[in-house]
Write a protein that binds this DNA or RNA. Structure first.
Lengths: 206, 206
DNA sequence: CGCCCGGCTGAACGAGTGTGCAATAATCGG
DNA sequence: CCGATTATTGCACACTCGTTCAGCCGGGCG
């Protein structure tokens, strides 16, 4: 019942479930697995959350709360100073190696109402960002702000979703300390200069 | 045993498994579900593939073959004419609404050796594309071709991974007939012109 | 015709699943 | 200290899982 530094049992269970769900997917994790990971009995898991589905809902809500707070904080900070906090680097660094990003991946791919609400929040944030930057003259005006915001959002989320693949194949974790600067530079170069020699050219991408 | 128009039973089972795996994830699909979807008995599934894991391997291999062929064809076509076939639009349109893209999503997120091989193929394709375009003078030279190729690849795959979320929130399927042109225009505009007013400016993204 | 043989099925088994329940251990107010 | 409330557990039940196996059924071949 105490809310001190060490976690309560139900929080322990929730965090264990979050880790396992993120790594293996919800269906591949049993209540007994969660109990073992949390160091408690399977009965306690049910006693605290009622059912496995309810536990999943609690984990979803917890993750949503986390990202909701992060988004709000980020929007506020960028309202005060458009340039300072407004880059993905600090965001990603702050997220650290916690299980939140890995859970976010499952959440977005598995879908569901919670995922849709979260994605809507992120998209709204992206739109607001684009609007501010365009108004401030940092971004060129766009004929399709919605699409531009979506493309930028997909760019950021794509790194999170494909992090493991990129790490394995490219050889550098794009969200690690070293890979992050390399990735940011490539993205910044793209955003600042584009990549084609003749502006307004015909189509060409991979 | 025949390879005519209507599929053989084992191919029927494989396709049913691919659909269900893509939609719900491997662990959430039972052999009985697959059998029902394919219209056969559960025993026949095991009889043809030995086990559920082996069936999943067969599905993986089938999908890998499909994308391998597509990649090879795409590289060949773009070698002949750099501009004509070298856009994602035709690729996505050719993939259509088949289950391959949905399965690709699960494959990339669940990881595993097959996914890593596929991602490596895609990354190699992206690198080769970037190299050709830079050499042809279509792309500006880059200080980090690897990172540039990775960013472009993530951009394309991100749309596939987040397709459902984008459809639900933005309101347009980015791989549908109408959404594709809107999405392509936004991406093309980004690639051609960048989005910041002062090239080489300081950091700014969402 | 009889035979057999590969595709296919239904029933069954053991293991593992989520969950309910009674009993035990811990904690706290009096 | 004691009673009570809460946290926690072991056990059991019903069910589903993947998988096995004996047998059915239709068609090609002697």
């Amino acid at each position: 019942m105490r809310s001190t530094g060490d976690l309560t049992a139900s929080a322990l269970i929730r965090d264990a479930a979050m880790r396992l769900f993120a790594d293996r997917g919800t269906a591949a994790v049993s209540v007994r697995d969660i109990a073992a990971e949390a160091g408690v009995s399977p009965s306690l898991v049910i006693h605290h959350y009622g059912s496995k589905d309810a536990l999943k809902d609690a984990v979803d809500q917890h993750v949503m709360q986390f990202f909701g707070d992060m988004i709000a904080e980020f929007v506020d900070a960028s309202a005060a100073d458009l340039g300072a906090a407004a880059n993905s680097s600090t965001l990603a660094a702050r997220l650290g190696d916690g299980p939140f990003l890995r859970y976010l991946r499952r959440l977005l791919v598995d879908g569901g109402p919670a995922a849709e609400r979260l994605f809507r929040s992120l998209y709204d944030m992206s739109r607001e960002m684009v609007r501010r930057y365009e108004q401030a003259g940092v971004f060129k005006p766009s004929s399709d702000e919605g699409a531009r915001a979506a493309v930028l959002l997909v760019n950021d989320l794509g790194v999170i979703l494909l992090r493991d693949q990129i790490s394995a194949v490219v050889g550098v974790d794009p969200l690690g300390p070293d890979g992050l600067v390399r990735w940011s530079q490539a993205v910044l170069d793209l955003y600042a200069n584009g990549l084609m020699t003749s502006p307004g050219d015909d189509r060409a991408n991979d």
